[in-house]
Amino acid sequence: MSVEIELRAARVRYGPLEALHGVDLAVPARSLTVLLGRNGSGRTTVLRALAGTVALTAGRVVWRGEDVTRLPAHHRARRGLCLVPDVRAVHAGLTVTENLRLAAPGGEFTAALDGYPALRPLLGRRAGTLSGGEQRMLAVSRALVGGARLVLLDEPAQGMAPETAERTYDLLAQLARERAVVVAEQRLPPGRPAIVHRLRRGNVVFSGESAEFDGLAPG
């Protein structure tokens, strides 16, 4: 299995606090990777380090064999990386249609509406007026139609109804057949093969397939 992107001995500090303590973590190509951990475990920082929105204090980020540690976030985005953060993931002042057209190459976003039919009656609404779950649908839809080869999502199903959350992970699993998809979650989405990295206090304490992870005690 080829590696899409990886952290090598990565350390990140926020002021006096070190959030990642020499993390080694590989993301396979064309796969679903899940970063598990409680709040404060470092999973969001891993996403930000991969995306370039936080700088490493030590270590490297290697993307398809190239050291991109010093490559700014906007250059990584131009190369095909999409980050969907847990907050402020949509353009609040633009309509749903405008959000989707900006994300989709050529402005074609039919796939987003096929994935989330509930967005159809909301196309004329400004994104900032949507509920939390509706904004998450829009944010994930932007990633689905954007054409990025590496998609990073922080709690993509946050605020969604259970059936919509299930639909979201079905869509992400389909996307992972062609691209590298990384999600940060507190719990492992059931029934979907994935590579799992479990973090605790800035360290990786488990790496393996989801089948191996099943049955391990929570913590």
Results as ranks from 00 to 15, higher is better:
residue 186 Q to V: 06
residue 41 S to F: 05
residue 84 V to F: 03
residue 107 G to I: 13
residue 79 R to I: 00
residue 213 F to K: 10
residue 88 R to Q: 14
residue 18 E to W: 10
residue 124 G to W: 12
residue 166 E to L: 12
residue 42 G to I: 02
residue 89 A to H: 14
residue 76 R to E: 04
residue 33 T to L: 00
residue 80 G to F: 09
residue 159 G to N: 11
residue 157 A to D: 14
residue 121 P to C: 10
residue 45 T to M: 04
residue 108 E to R: 15
residue 207 S to Q: 12
residue 164 T to G: 03
residue 155 E to L: 05
residue 69 T to F: 02
residue 147 G to N: 05
residue 98 E to R: 15
residue 205 V to C: 07
residue 202 G to V: 00
residue 210 S to D: 08
residue 145 V to E: 10
residue 23 V to H: 07
residue 209 E to T: 12
residue 138 L to D: 06
residue 131 S to D: 06
residue 156 P to Y: 05
residue 109 F to Y: 15
residue 215 G to T: 11
residue 192 R to T: 05
residue 198 R to K: 13
residue 215 G to K: 13
residue 50 L to N: 01
residue 69 T to C: 01
residue 37 G to Q: 04
residue 94 L to P: 12
residue 193 P to Q: 10
residue 3 V to G: 01
residue 116 Y to V: 05
residue 91 H to E: 07
residue 186 Q to F: 03
residue 88 R to F: 11
residue 104 A to D: 10
residue 166 E to V: 10
residue 158 Q to E: 15
residue 122 L to G: 12
residue 207 S to P: 00
residue 139 A to D: 04
residue 59 G to D: 04
residue 204 V to P: 02
residue 25 L to Y: 10
residue 6 E to V: 04
residue 184 A to R: 08
residue 90 V to G: 07
residue 157 A to H: 02
residue 217 A to W: 13
residue 68 V to T: 12
residue 160 M to H: 08
residue 91 H to N: 04
residue 211 A to I: 03
residue 163 E to P: 00
residue 160 M to C: 07
residue 203 N to A: 14
residue 43 R to L: 00
residue 11 R to T: 08
residue 12 V to F: 05
residue 198 R to C: 04
residue 141 S to R: 13
residue 78 R to F: 00
residue 127 A to W: 12
residue 157 A to R: 04
residue 179 R to D: 00
residue 73 A to M: 02
residue 150 L to G: 00
residue 177 R to G: 15
residue 9 A to W: 00
residue 85 P to T: 11
residue 213 F to N: 09
